[in-house]
Simulated scan of single mutants.
Amino acid sequence: MTLKDKVEKNYEPSKKKQFAGQPIIAWIFQILLMILALLIMNHFIVDNIIVIVAAGILVILTFVSLALNNHDR
């Protein structure tokens, strides 16, 4: 679809759910990361390689969701 087609058809890009300029899924990943940090800090779970990998995955998922959101704009 060319720009001319979009203008002629009053094209509106799909609006994704956002809060404070970030997609809701990014907020969920960030909140999960904070909960994980609090659980480690309060010694409810042990700080081992599995927890560190889980935290890394949450960080990567957060950045990917933000990057995909910026790509759509």
Rank of each mutant, 00 (worst) to 15 (best):
A54D: 00
I52F: 08
Y11M: 09
I40P: 02
F19H: 10
M41H: 08
N48E: 02
L39K: 13
V51Y: 00
Q18F: 07
V59H: 10
N48I: 06
Q30A: 14
I60K: 05
N42E: 12
K15M: 10
Q18S: 12
A55L: 01
I49T: 11
W27I: 04
L36I: 01
L61N: 08
I49G: 01
I31E: 09
G56Q: 02
F63Y: 15
L61P: 01
V51K: 03
A54H: 01
F44D: 07
I35S: 03
Y11L: 07
L32Q: 06
I45M: 10
I50Q: 08
A54R: 01
K17I: 11
Y11T: 11
L39C: 10
L32W: 02
E12P: 00
W27T: 04
I60H: 05
S14V: 12
A55G: 10
F29C: 02
P23K: 11
A55P: 01
A37T: 10
I49H: 06
K9S: 15
I35P: 02
M34S: 05
N42T: 15
I50N: 09
Q30V: 10
A54M: 05
M41C: 05
E8N: 15
N48H: 11
L36H: 01
E8A: 13
K15L: 14
E8Q: 12
A37C: 07
I60Q: 04
A37Q: 05
T62S: 04
Q18T: 11
L39F: 03
I60A: 12
I40Q: 04
I60M: 05
P23R: 08
I35T: 06
S14G: 03
P13G: 07
L39G: 09
I28G: 04
F44I: 08
D47G: 01
I28H: 03
